[in-house]
Design a protein around this nucleic acid. Structure first.
Length: 270
DNA sequence: CGGATTTGACCAGCGC
DNA sequence: GCGCTGGTCAAATCCG
């Protein structure tokens, strides 16, 4: 099985790339204790702004790398964990469509197959809150322990708009307690209340929310084939290499920080 | 005090 | 019909 050690590093991905204000003379090394002139301060401030911008870009790159890797990992996990019998519906024993009873569909005048999707969310394995910060507002209305998973499944309804029919089920992966699987049913009939919370890598309770493009294929019972991923090959290869670097080298983030630092030293004064 | 969460009860579908 | 299971309800409880 896959090495989950990287998940413990996920929080460290939110490495502090920000550059603080210039050191005060008291904090500076002994050989730099002379007070800076005004023009020097201006130069340093400009340099600081430039570095901050670069740090921002680098942080976004790391964020993207993390999400891309997690998405691929989630998909791989999905493929590995879904048995052939389970690919059609939630349970072969029950003729429900994605967990929605026939009665519910009839009463609510819905079609046979509500639009659904899944998201994988990286969390702290010790976090049992089952909270997926996807930007929408949810109200929990139930929790159940299911037969095939020791972790409880939580049921949520979208509470942002009273008429919004969207529901979601959130359950930890049975194999990987650091992975949350959120199953969404229906479509929102309103705008997203807050986009800022989505893909918030710095958020420790939901390090990365990962849309899984394979899920819609479930309705057609088509096997999810990694080769059919629409990502260009080159991009995928790049993502895999970056992911590999993240997983194999625990000091990868430190290396990035070192590179940034070296870049700072090489950067000419503005 | 009002809204959100918890949790046991209830319901429906399915297999035997 | 009965038991099992997943999904939902709703009263109790929590919390800001």
């Amino acid at each position: 099985m896959m090495d989950s050690s990287w998940t413990n590093q996920s929080s460290s991905l939110s490495l502090d790339l920000s550059v603080g204000p210039p050191r005060s003379p008291d904090q500076a090394p002994p050989d730099q204790r002379s007070p800076p002139r005004k023009e020097e301060v201006g130069v340093l401030e400009a340099k600081l702004n430039q570095i901050s911008e670069e740090n921002k870009r680098l942080a976004e790159m790391v964020s993207d790398m993390h999400m891309n890797y997690s998405a691929l990992r989630g998909r791989l996990f999905d493929l590995a964990s879904v048995s052939p019998q389970e690919k059609g519906s939630v349970s072969p024993k029950r003729k429900r469509v994605d967990g929605v009873s026939c009665k519910y569909q009839i009463e609510h005048g819905q079609g046979p197959i509500p639009k659904s999707s899944k998201m994988y969310v990286r969390i702290d394995p010790t976090d049992s809150s089952l909270v997926v910060k996807d930007g929408y507002q949810w109200r929990k209305y139930g929790q159940k322990v299911t037969r095939d998973n020791p972790f409880p499944r939580a049921y949520f309804r979208c509470s942002f708009a009273p008429s919004c029919p969207v529901k979601k089920k959130v359950q930890k992966s049975a194999e990987d307690g650091s992975l949350l699987l959120a199953t969404y049913e229906g479509e929102h009939n309103h705008e997203r209340p807050s986009r800022d919370k989505v893909y918030s890598v710095s958020d420790h309770s939901a390090a990365a929310v990962l849309p899984c493009p394979s899920i819609d294929a479930e309705h057609t019972s088509q096997p999810c084939d990694l080769d059919k991923v629409e990502l260009p090959k080159l991009q995928r290869l790049l993502v895999e290499q970056m992911a590999s670097a993240l997983t194999k080298d625990p000091s990868f983030t430190a290396a990035i920080a070192t590179a940034i630092y070296e870049r700072m030293l090489q950067s000419p004064p503005a």
